[in-house]
Design a protein around this nucleic acid. Structure first.
Lengths: 332, 332
DNA sequence: CTGTTAGCGCATTCAT
DNA sequence: ATGAATGCGCTAACAG
């Protein structure tokens, strides 16, 4: 910028204003400045600008994992909205680990981001780190795996209903002994989905059996083993409702390993955003969340609040609808 | 920091040094500073520091899409290495669109990142934007979809051999009319994989038929249609080698739509990192790239260069190996 | 071991 | 419509 000013015989201030398209600079000067800036391939130093304006034009995204279609689609939506508004996106993965999540929230304290989109780790039980982070300013919007301890907006799906529908789907398909794989008792999505499961059982006159509920682990291998064990000790199980994609896949593998035919002996339904990939197997019925839209809407709420410098209210929360998805039968 | 200095009756400089664990400050003072900093939940302003040191401790990742297991696994590896080294990761998606890629490289000019990991868009034919970006300093490492125009390191896989093996796999399975779905003639991965295909055909005495090669589009629906058209006009096609996951899925759907049994009538092999999801269907044989490792190694090369302030040499390039992956048969 | 000073690049207030 | 001066929060060179 110094260089621009010198070569054009202008002050740095004028150059700065010209580049910001300020009304108080003559059109010709603006043009001259722009022309030279383009020629020199000038780009302003984002950090100097951030420091001065106390605004980073950057948002952070904290999610458990990226190797999961739900989250990668959500990122897609987030990135899209951010790009359109000129924001940059920092990404952090908690791997569903509480310690990592705490570390991440520490890095984020201190103005690096203007706002944050977050889906909390399944291991997280304690929200002190989030409260601390929240105290340090940035706007926060939770999506999917929310934290009720903070008074802010959250974008979720109709988990209770989806859980109900999923269970009902299995019951109507003839299942009477339905296991439930819970993602985590800590997460509201887990609790909601499970409530739907319980109520559906009840409404159809099936007794709720606590021993058919398995709480998922971070380790996929272990999950598969535990499902196998359940299937061995409880051979009457004829249906599985998995509350997240990873657990659905573990169920699938467990059945395969034990030679239980899907869907003849055991029917599986699971939350999943495998998308086209799910088309590959007719045996897996999925509940698909509108992941892209979730990311997009969460980002919109966040950026809107940042731009207007208004706090985010819980009343801005959104509940989108998931879709029960069955593969059309293979053409004969 | 000002506040810390005041409350402790120290100069700002001393506080700064204490927080950096400088050797020229007394242990007791360090402790006092740290204690108060922790108590006040102080976090340094990263942008002020970046401005001063001309170092952002941030790297950028530019990829075509994130909703793809190859790239999301790569990000996983990248994030892991970055986190360990205290770096932050900015993510940008080009959606395989040339214009977007150009825009992104513009944002990135100007010190926002210390380095860049990049996989170029399939539409990109012209590398001026990359050369301009490169001129503006940041270290760049390409992975998978590389750009040979820049003299820097790249992390790739043995694409020629994989293409050869994939084709050979189909030939050995009895295929004689093998179509190839090319990701893009612009990309070296496309060219390498196709060369493997051609050579394998030749080595097995099968004539190369140019009309059996389809160049992929950005639109998945269109790809499916084009494969369907190919299968209709060329009913003798009994094998498809898809050079990327999306094209493999399109092939799969095209066959389904037309009622061509997989793998009885048409065999499909494709590059894919669907991972566990691919386990779902025995009909799809995949070539799996070590995506996580690619991301990790690329990030290592990049961060190493940044920390040592040394330029990245093409000789640091790495070639990892992909794996032919067939699903074990379903337990009976 | 600690304090003083200067300046990173930019945006802004005040003056002209 | 433009320029001069100030400071964002931090680091580093220099002085003691």
């Amino acid at each position: 910028m110094k260089r621009l000013a010198q070569e054009l015989n202008l002050s740095i201030a004028t150059v700065s204003r010209a580049l910001q398209d300020s009304y108080e600079v003559s059109p010709q000067t603006k043009e001259r400045v722009r022309a030279l800036a383009a020629e020199l391939n000038y780009q302003p130093n984002a950090y100097a600008s951030s420091l001065r304006r106390n605004l980073s034009k950057t948002i952070g995204v904290v999610i458990p994992e990226v190797n999961n279609h739900f989250f990668s689609l959500a990122i897609n939506g987030i990135e899209e909205v951010a790009r359109q508004s000129g924001y940059h996106v920092l990404i952090y993965l908690s791997h569903d680990d509480y310690e990592r999540e705490v570390d991440i929230t520490h890095y984020l304290t201190g103005g690096r981001v203007d706002g944050l989109l977050m889906s909390v780790a399944s291991e997280t039980r304690d929200f002190d780190h989030l409260l601390k982070l929240y105290a340090s300013k940035p706007a926060i919007v939770f999506f999917d795996r929310v934290c009720d301890a903070l008074s802010t907006a959250q974008v979720t799906t109709n988990d209770y209903e989806s859980g109900y529908q999923a269970t009902q789907h299995l019951i109507e398909a003839g299942c009477r002994h339905i296991a439930h794989l819970l993602v985590s008792g800590n997460l509201s999505i887990g609790r909601m989905r499970m409530q739907g499961y319980q109520t559906a059982l009840h409404d159809h006159g099936i007794a709720f059996d606590e021993t058919l509920v398995l709480s998922g682990d971070r380790d996929d291998e272990r999950n598969t083993e535990r499902v196998m064990e359940l299937l061995r000790t409880r051979p009457e199980v004829d249906g599985i409702f998995a509350s997240v994609e990873r657990l659905a896949i573990s169920s699938y593998q467990a059945c395969n390993n034990l030679g239980r035919a899907i869907p003849d002996q055991v029917k599986i339904i699971g939350f999943s955003n495998l998308g086209v990939a799910a088309l590959l197997d007719p045996a897996l019925t999925t509940i698909t969340q509108p992941a892209y839209e979730i990311g997009r809407e969460a980002a919109r709420i966040l950026l809107h609040a940042i731009e207007k410098k208004k706090p985010i209210l819980p009343s801005q929360s959104l509940v989108l609808k998931s879709e029960l998805f069955r593969r059309r039968s293979t053409a004969s």
